[in-house]
Design a protein around this nucleic acid. Structure first.
Lengths: 259, 259
DNA sequence: AGAATAGTGTCTATCAGACACTATGCA
DNA sequence: TGCATAGTGTCTGATAGACACTATTCT
């Protein structure tokens, strides 16, 4: 438990017995599964929810689209237990996007553990959900494994039934990621991770509309926005957003991390 | 992908290549982690949220309280990939409670994958959340591994700082389970899995109060209840609940599964 | 000037919080 | 009869939906 700051072991009465036990402990002879992390990386570009997909270069599912991901490093499992699963997700996120560390929201989504979900061997996959600001999205470059990387519109993916061309159970993972972000946008500040650092009311509304797939009444959205402003969730910032089609320029705001 | 009903493989162009690849595939030589499932099993008894804990009989954390759980059977990993992680959770739930199959709500909670969370070897734990009706809770008997099993009040667990006596990272898991059920009770019908099949308005309210740790205005709760009745979420059923302190007997209702 | 967008006034329906109230059935 | 509980009437404030409206700035 060296990674546990609470130091529970030191509270244990018969620590000596336990130490002796640990020394004698032999890793189970049970077969073990491989464990991977997969990433559902979303952004919103042009009012459209997009997901980062790679084209698989090798078997199985060669040439199919897939979510980026990789194996969790578990060290030798005894003296070196390797990296936290969450750290593996962070690592893969950086490797796939080459974006600066900590610039994206990342959270665990769900663990997909069906037998035979990978035809090669037993693989249990911990899926993560990442959100990339539209200002960062164009900077994303292909991962180190040189596979083709592409921002794909979720809408057109479904319209063209291209989800049938997603490798493994990645269609199911993507579906759950969409549900997660749709549900969570209503009661948590994840929308602020899908707009530029400084954003206008309309830009924030556009994110809500892209994610939920519905239109929002502009009047009511402005009211909710004002309330967040009054509650200190967001604050005004300098500058204006130029209006491409003529008209007043929109004020800019930013999310207030420390409420 | 034999467990995948969509038959994706048959859509694959170069299936023969893939079959050949699969035949030649050799399981990775990377070390692999053990994968376990742990269960946070809740019930509400006497207006109190309770969790099922076992007392550990062996090292490590011998004599400490812990969440019930066990290893996921992954077969030999190639020809036999073993059981789904979710099936493992169902199996453990039955083994620990001896309750009839399908009598409890069960959902995945979160995957705990920190290195060194188990001092013996690298263990990645998929935690599940289960809800047991108060009518079934007294029927729960100790698991096959003969460890002492007990319904422990979450409130008194925290009041007495007994959470420090929870093995591994089970305090963290329990905390997340409480947050999950507290958050989810507002927008999903999980409360109906914590009352008898036939329940009164006050009984349902008592579950909300036990889970959220606050009191609910009876008038407003009745109104929400009436709305659910009108929406067909619940329906009236026969019988009344006798009033222990004299007074009118409460009507009984039941959750309408097929809306 | 015309057009598209930013942002506001305001009416209405819905729902939560709060308080008072009636009805019931056992001691 | 007393009393704790089941269940209702109703006022008030907060919020969402809808529609009309003014203000701004580029072409």
């Amino acid at each position: 438990m060296s990674s546990d700051p609470s130091g529970k072991l030191s509270h244990h009465e018969d620590f000596d017995d336990e130490a002796a036990f640990l020394a004698a402990y032999k890793a189970q002879d049970y077969p073990r599964p491989s464990v991977t992390v997969d990433l559902v990386i979303f952004t919103v570009l042009d009012g459209d929810l997009k997901v980062l997909l790679i084209e698989r270069g090798g078997h199985p599912f060669k040439g199919w689209w897939a979510l980026p991901g990789g194996f969790v490093n578990v060290g030798d499992g005894v003296k070196d237990q390797g990296e936290d699963v969450e750290d593996a997700a962070h690592r893969e996120l950086e490797e796939e996007t080459h974006l600066p560390k900590g610039s994206c929201h990342l959270e665990q989504l769900y663990t997909f553990g069906k037998a035979y979900r990978d035809p090669r061997t037993r693989v249990i996959d911990v899926a993560y959900l990442a959100l990339v600001r539209p200002t960062l999205a164009p900077l994303v470059t292909a991962g180190d494994d040189a596979a083709a990387t592409r921002w794909v519109s979720v809408q057109t993916l479904w319209d063209n039934s291209d989800t049938q061309r997603l490798a493994f159970d990645h269609r199911e993972i993507l579906t759950m990621a969409i549900e997660r972000v749709r549900g969570k946008i209503d009661y948590s500040p994840i929308a602020f991770d899908l707009v530029p650092e400084a954003f206008s009311v309309a830009e924030l509304r556009s994110v809500y509309e892209a994610v939920k797939g519905t239109t929002y009444n502009a009047r009511n959205f402005n009211r909710r926005f004002k309330r967040m402003l009054a509650d200190g969730v967001i604050e005004t910032t300098v500058g204006h957003r130029p209006n491409p089609s003529g008209g007043p320029r929109a004020h800019l705001y930013q999310f207030k991390r420390a409420a």
